[in-house]
Write a protein that binds this DNA or RNA. Structure first.
Lengths: 224, 224
DNA sequence: CCTACCGATCGGTAGG
DNA sequence: CCTACCGATCGGTAGG
């Protein structure tokens, strides 16, 4: 089998190739990590030469940085943008949780959450990749905290609640879920995460709708 | 600098060397991962030859398996054993959470939680290492669920509570905390995790001691 | 436990 | 974007 079909419609020739490379790099890196991802493997997967691929980036580190940036764009498109459109405050916060869990469950990347994998891989190394991952983590955290503050100003969440604490608990729960889910692949874990989030929000929500009882902790609690 | 001092007191000669190798392997793997850990690097760090080290295991995979097993023993010693001695039920459950967070905070391994790192690294690969990591995860989950059942039979936790759900929420929260903590290195995250666990247990605990109010979500909630 | 070596692959370069 | 190559390192082996 020679080469590969070059029918991935994008802008110009060189840009298209670069995008194809980065799409494959994000995919591979989500599974094997960014350090184990080799230029040779990546090139042969795309049917091009090692040196040809290398020329697009100039160093492995530059390829890694570009890969993280590409993954950030995917995450923004798949998780942040859909939730951003929801009504402000609590619904939007819940939407962020949902789109994040869905991003993992739909297997947007074969290795699960790209940034969780990169976080574990680079948390002990200095350099631009760790900086990127840290910056994005803080960016997302701030975004969610702002959503909680909006929920408070809309009287959906009690004013005495610390936004940082709610956001921390929700994101830690979801991130921990993702780690376990990738290992065990049991969809019930995603369900349990949703129940956990409901229980957490129950504690801070103003005037919960009496029509629903949300027995998150109850035995055999299942979604309808 | 030739060789290294061989004064790590253990049983026989060969066993001692093997233990030294595995201690270094666990330490290195917690930072770089088990796949990136190379036999050459490990050997030179211990001041021995590559072939000499290799002879102890016969293959890289066997070294990896032995490393995970060694890490399991450390985890048992550092996390499970100390908590096991606490009073049964809720105090024991809380002790497991505490010793686990402490295991990360005390940096028992330089890379944080060994099994979280291995979980992320091997969740997409078949083979004995993933099996080990999975088996240990399930073992710990079952252990914690048993503790919750004991707490129920001791009337510390309500009978209507689903042990699997409590254990899931607590461990997901802690695991997510560990991922964030390793990346951001902010001790407040550990504190927030403890508050989150308190809040979670508050919902399921029987007859909370009226002497304390546990305002886990409140702004500026700090430990004494 | 060692030295010496194997073929394969790594990131990166030369030159086109 | 290619072929051809560099020195270094990989897991693993031979032989002692």
């Amino acid at each position: 089998m020679p080469r590969q079909s070059r029918t991935s419609g994008s802008t110009s020739r060189g840009t298209s190739t670069r995008k194809d490379i980065l799409a494959a790099a994000v995919s591979l890196a989500s599974v094997e990590g960014l350090e184990s991802l080799s230029i040779g493997t990546l090139a042969s997967e795309l049917g091009m030469s090692k040196a040809g691929l290398f020329a697009h980036f100039g160093s492995k580190e530059a390829l890694q940085v570009a890969t993280v940036e590409a993954a950030r764009l995917v995450f923004t498109e798949e998780v942040l943008v859909p939730a951003r459109g929801r009504p402000p405050g609590l619904p939007q916060f819940q939407a962020y949780i949902d789109t994040y869990l869905s991003y993992v469950q739909r297997r947007v990347h074969p290795g699960g959450c790209f940034f969780t994998a990169m976080s574990i891989e680079f948390d002990d190394r200095r350099g631009p990749v760790r900086s990127q991952v840290r910056a994005f983590a803080i960016e997302c955290r701030d975004l969610l905290e702002q959503t909680i503050r909006e929920a408070q100003s809309l009287d959906q969440i009690h004013a005495w609640v610390d936004p940082a604490q709610v956001v921390f608990e929700a994101t830690a729960l979801v991130r921990g879920t993702i780690v376990s889910y990738q290992l065990l692949r049991d969809p019930i874990l995603i369900q349990r995460a949703r129940l956990g989030i409901e229980g957490l929000l129950e504690r801070v929500r103003v005037a919960p709708p009496a029509s629903e009882l949300r027995p998150a902790m109850r035995r055999g609690a299942e979604r309808a």
